[in-house]
Amino acid sequence: MIKLASAVTPPLLTGATLASPVSVAQSVFWETVDQLWYVCQPDGTPEDMDRVTVTRLSADGALVDKMYLGRSGHGTGLCVERTTAGTFLWTGAVPNGGWATALARIPYAANGTADASDPAVVRTPRSGVFRVSASIDPTRHQLIFRWQENNVSSPTATGGIDAYDLGMAATGMFQRVRSTTFQASGKTLQGFTSLGDYIYHLYGDQSVDNFQVTCADWASGTVLQTQAVTAFPGIANREPEGICVYEDTLAFGIAGKPDGVRQLNVARFPHPGTNPWVEVPGLSPAYYPNSVNYTPQYRIAGDQVHLHFALSKTDGTAWNQGEVLFTLPPRVRPNRTQRLLGVVSGAAVTADTMAVRFEVAPDGKVTIWDERSLVGWVGADVSFWVC
């Protein structure tokens, strides 16, 4: 289960401009193979009110290309299937009153167009349902299908969520592997996804401070966690839009409309098992950090220990071979000596490498090993070991 908490900073995307100037984003998906964001917007064109624009963004938010999908619906629940045959979009199809009643599986064509309600691409997990959307659980290779039994707005809707094997669903074969129901939430749904044994929903309204993410158990439907979302305060027309699996955690979108431009902002929750940075206790007065940001500190992230520091010697003398910089507490000590690569002040070397070696011993002592009698600060920014 993802432990819902305040969003991690810095955010994944800030103010990314989308391809369509007509409406804000409705859904977002992270495709991990090509490292691209896919974002869906209702197009709102007078000649085809059910057309959507799919924007592809690079990992840092640069516009890559786009695709238009006619007869798709409102643009909720976009997800992406990456195969050896190419990239396929799962999106809405056969709209009724602007909202999809079926799904479509469409090959992505950069700057191309497609008809999402073409029978050749339509997939119908259930008939007689309303306002459907889909997600993909990459950990189980499952297509997750959310449907309403009544054609009403989400606060008063009832319905269910089904899971299907993604490979079979691609061929049009839908045999449910698990299913759950939901009752009226009283909240505006802005996206959902599944990860392992849990379902996550994003709720909220534009420019209203009521955004939240919930975590529910697949087996019982019981809500286990609720987390208020406070990321990106002050954005014009701030509205939550879309949630998806991002690596081994969750990312969510918040749309903005400053001066009429349609932008997307994306943040994520902490990775499972990632703990806050903790200052190493008992630093000797013989050393001082470059700044408060470089005081020796560690954090536990899954099965890794991360180490971060930059130190100078108080008396300005050279670093000695095997000199102990500080000692880590027992809970983060390795079970064997670990060698770490660090950096040294550029002023300390001339026409030579700025790399320096540290060792972390099972007794927690962090030592420096370099025969050059270095003078200046030494540090490690991204060093880690497995605990």
Results as ranks from 00 to 15, higher is better:
308 H>I: 02
41 Q>F: 03
30 W>N: 02
89 L>N: 11
235 I>C: 04
240 P>V: 09
307 L>Y: 03
173 M>L: 12
350 T>H: 14
297 Q>Y: 02
294 Y>L: 13
362 P>Q: 08
154 S>K: 07
131 R>S: 09
227 Q>D: 04
241 E>Q: 15
138 P>R: 13
375 V>N: 13
12 L>D: 00
117 S>F: 05
346 G>T: 12
111 N>I: 09
334 P>F: 08
59 A>D: 01
371 E>N: 14
155 P>E: 11
90 W>H: 02
312 S>H: 10
274 T>R: 11
169 A>S: 14
76 T>A: 14
77 G>Q: 02
337 T>M: 12
264 L>K: 02
292 V>R: 07
76 T>C: 12
261 V>Q: 15
322 G>P: 04
21 P>I: 01
84 T>H: 06
137 D>Y: 06
15 G>Q: 03
166 L>C: 08
199 I>H: 08
331 R>H: 00
257 K>S: 10
107 P>N: 06
117 S>A: 15
204 G>L: 06
200 Y>H: 03
254 I>K: 01
236 A>T: 15
107 P>S: 12
36 L>N: 08
382 V>R: 12
375 V>P: 05
171 T>L: 10
74 H>M: 09
353 T>I: 05
382 V>N: 13
143 L>G: 06
304 Q>N: 12
298 Y>Q: 01
12 L>F: 02
50 D>W: 08
256 G>T: 04
203 Y>L: 04
322 G>V: 02
104 A>Q: 08
49 M>P: 01
103 L>G: 01
78 L>T: 02
198 Y>Q: 10
191 G>N: 08
281 P>M: 02
101 T>V: 11
257 K>A: 12
153 S>D: 15
191 G>H: 08
186 G>H: 05
30 W>E: 00
211 F>R: 06
174 F>M: 03
128 G>A: 11
132 V>D: 09
220 S>H: 07
16 A>P: 01
310 A>V: 04
132 V>G: 09
139 T>Y: 12
265 N>H: 15
7 A>Y: 08
293 N>F: 07
168 M>G: 05
186 G>C: 10
131 R>M: 07
37 W>I: 00
335 N>S: 11
338 Q>A: 07
205 D>N: 15
115 D>L: 06
167 G>E: 15
258 P>I: 09
140 R>V: 04
159 G>T: 11
115 D>E: 14
341 L>I: 13
19 A>F: 11
7 A>R: 07
219 A>Y: 02
87 T>V: 14
227 Q>E: 15
108 Y>V: 12
95 P>Y: 14
293 N>S: 05
334 P>G: 07
80 V>W: 04
285 P>R: 11
265 N>Q: 03
164 Y>Q: 10
